[in-house]
Nucleic acid binder design. Structure first.
Lengths: 164, 164
DNA sequence: GACTCAACTGCAACACGTTGCATCTACACG
DNA sequence: CGTGTAGATGCAACGTGTTGCAGTTGAGTC
């Protein structure tokens, strides 16, 4: 979905530093470092771009077959509080997590071909500004998933039918 | 997935005209009018604003206790094809349906207080335009749900903490 | 009114995610 | 190193929604 060569470092450290920092940050919050959490962290560290919750459970099971879903989801909650992951809901309402969000971004999903893209904060900043001005609403862009049709599919549709 | 129909009349108090049309439109498509569908239509006709799928199932059961979820959800699919209902996914990923969408609109949901609002097409038109120009992407605004914090909650937070 | 057939229904099983509760354990402290 | 305890785990049950399948039924036709 995304290339491995993500332009890292928005201002904070590199990924590896963040992963080792997680343990310390758990401790800071009075939380614990357990084998199950280590497994999830290992999985996340090896993950690029977006993953669904179910997929994370699968990958954890690949490492430790005794993994149970509830533990994974609860740990993901904790990690989200820590800012290590973010989640949004895909077009079908399923959870999608992304790892170490370097910068704020939203999501575009094409209903026709199923592909998705990220949109940078800059691209939607004008609308966010407008919403803030008009209604005082501060939208959380990284939780945003816009569904629609991508340029390719629109073009294909136009060619095929003309109507809808 | 979309039908051209139903653009007219934003402010009709009684939707009865539209509801009676449903049966005819089902017939037009070679589809059938069944007691189960009638029940759901009755429920929808008595519904304002947004409802979750589960709630619709409940209300149908109130009328006909033998109602089964799969039938309701399948009928909702059909009705969505007809343009009678629209659905989007709430902040928790659950389905929310709205009835007889007179005009296109998106949704704003406050994570802090749980309220939601509708945003008119005009309000987001500039961003939609920008997306179309920059990436050729045609966003479906009525499937959109932006999560964030409303003006009240932002103000409350600022007063309470000052930070985050 | 009877026949026919595709659309529809209900059921059971499944997928994803959440929650309550009893048990276990990481970790601070002595 | 042993102990206490709050945080974490695993299980089982639940909630919401989807799917495959076999049986039922709406509605067009004779």
């Amino acid at each position: 979905m995304r290339l491995p060569g993500v332009p890292e470092r928005p201002g904070t450290g590199s990924a590896s530093a963040d992963w080792s920092g997680v343990r310390a940050r758990l401790h800071d919050g009075g939380l614990r470092w357990t084998p199950q959490r280590r497994t999830l962290i290992d999985v996340l560290a090896a993950t690029d771009g977006h993953v669904t919750g179910a997929e994370l459970v699968e990958r954890c099971r690949a490492i430790d077959p005794t993994t149970t879903p509830s533990t994974v989801y609860r740990t993901l909650d904790v990690l989200e509080d820590l800012g290590v992951v973010r989640h949004h809901h895909g077009p079908d309402g399923r959870e999608e997590f992304h790892v170490l969000p370097e910068r704020e971004h939203g999501h575009l999903h094409c209903r026709a071909c199923g592909r998705s893209w990220e949109v940078g904060a800059a691209e939607v900043a004008p609308m966010l500004e407008a919403l803030r001005r008009h209604r005082g609403f501060e939208a959380d862009i990284s939780h945003m998933a816009l569904v629609g049709r991508c340029g390719d599919c629109v073009a294909a549709d136009d060619r095929a039918a003309g109507g809808d």
